[in-house]
């Protein structure tokens, strides 16, 4: 009897520590943040002393040109970066999906940019973009061109952070699409070859459609992650010059620590979270739909 009860309790015992930590340090803070976004709160106050101001933080945000600018920068950054990385990553995967020696070494080298600290990535690129000692401007002047104001000019600064992000994250898409390519059924590709499909035809009509489920999940994962980018940009430009590279995460950080408006920062965090939840939910629904389809296919096959 007692053993049976112990067995019934075990799953809860196993879950309890994780549940407790998540509740205290993740779930509670998020609820707290939602509440804080309705307060006029600065860091020297306890939360109880802050005034409740309803939706005023939100209305203030939407009428704030700087916030709209940084929202726009965030969206622009995510779309530009993810589009370029998808094309490059998938393209490279299609190109390098061959039976060659040293593929695993290549993959190892390609994941290095993702593994090292974003702070360090920012540091390296800031050094390379340095107006006088950086390698880019040095090479340009050596070859007789004018140096480029990489991080000093708004448009160039945006291009600079895009380039750094592409360097860091294209390998992610490359590795996921390569894995997808290598798990494709060999029979389909073989069959198309026998029917006389050219390399391009194989890619467009066989490989890409078969890879599509993985590509969509990859796209969503990368899109979600691109909203989380912070440290690389913080080190390279700290959002400047002006607001040209101030993505939402940096603005949250500045609003909280520089302008000391915790309520407003919480409202911004809330908006960012909503965007991410929508994306995550899309991914979840898509995965579920895929699973259901796979099940139906299997059922049909079994009946036949």
């Amino acid at each position: 009897m007692s053993i049976a009860r112990a067995n019934r309790l075990t799953p809860y015992l196993f879950l309890a520590p994780a549940g407790a930590v998540l509740a205290v340090a993740l779930f509670y803070p998020i609820c707290y943040m939602i509440y804080a976004s309705f307060l006029d709160w600065n860091p020297s106050q306890r939360i109880g002393e802050a005034d409740f101001i309803g939706l005023r933080n939100y209305t203030k945000l939407f009428s704030d040109a700087a916030f709209r600018e940084s929202m726009w920068v965030t969206i622009k950054f995510s779309i530009v970066v993810v589009t370029i990385e998808m094309f490059l990553g998938v393209g490279l995967a299609l190109l390098l999906d061959r039976n060659i020696r040293g593929m695993s070494v290549l993959r190892t080298l390609f994941i290095l940019p993702m593994m090292i600290a974003p702070i360090v990535v920012g540091l390296m690129w800031r050094y390379m973009y340095h107006p006088t000692v950086g390698i880019f401007n040095r090479t340009l002047t050596d070859w007789g061109f004018d140096p480029i104001p990489w991080l000093a000019d708004g448009d160039w600064a945006f291009a600079s952070i895009v380039i750094a992000d592409i360097w860091q994250w294209t390998p992610f898409i490359f590795i996921l699409s390569l894995a997808a390519l290598q798990s494709l059924p060999a029979s389909a590709i073989e069959a198309s070859r026998i029917d006389g499909a050219s390399g391009w035809q194989q890619i467009i009509y066989i490989k890409l459609p078969l890879m599509l489920p993985v590509l969509i999940v990859t796209l969503l994962l990368r899109l979600i992650d691109s909203f989380k980018v912070l440290e690389v940009i913080l080190v390279m430009t700290n959002g400047g010059p002006g607001l040209s590279t101030e993505i939402l995460s940096i603005r949250i950080n500045r609003t909280a620590s520089e302008f000391r408006e915790l309520g407003e920062a919480a409202a911004m965090s809330n908006l960012l979270l909503i965007v991410l939840l929508i994306l995550t939910f899309a991914m979840f629904i898509y995965n579920k739909a895929q699973e259901l389809r796979a099940q139906r296919m299997r059922a049909v096959e079994e009946e036949a």
């Binding site: 998540l22 340090a25 993740l26 779930f27 509670y28 803070p29 998020i30 707290y32 943040m33 804080a36 709160w41 860091p43 939360i47 979600i224 909203f227 989380k228 912070l230 939402l248 995460s249 949250i252 950080n253 909280a256 915790l262 920062a265 919480a266 965090s269 960012l272 979270l273 991410l276 939840l277 994306l279 995550t280």
Partner: peptide, 15 residues
């Protein structure tokens, strides 16, 4: 929860 970025936790965790 996996999708929660650190920036979102900044304000509440600090408080």
């Amino acid at each position: 929860m996996r999708m929660v970025p650190p920036a979102v936790l900044l304000v509440p965790v600090f408080g």
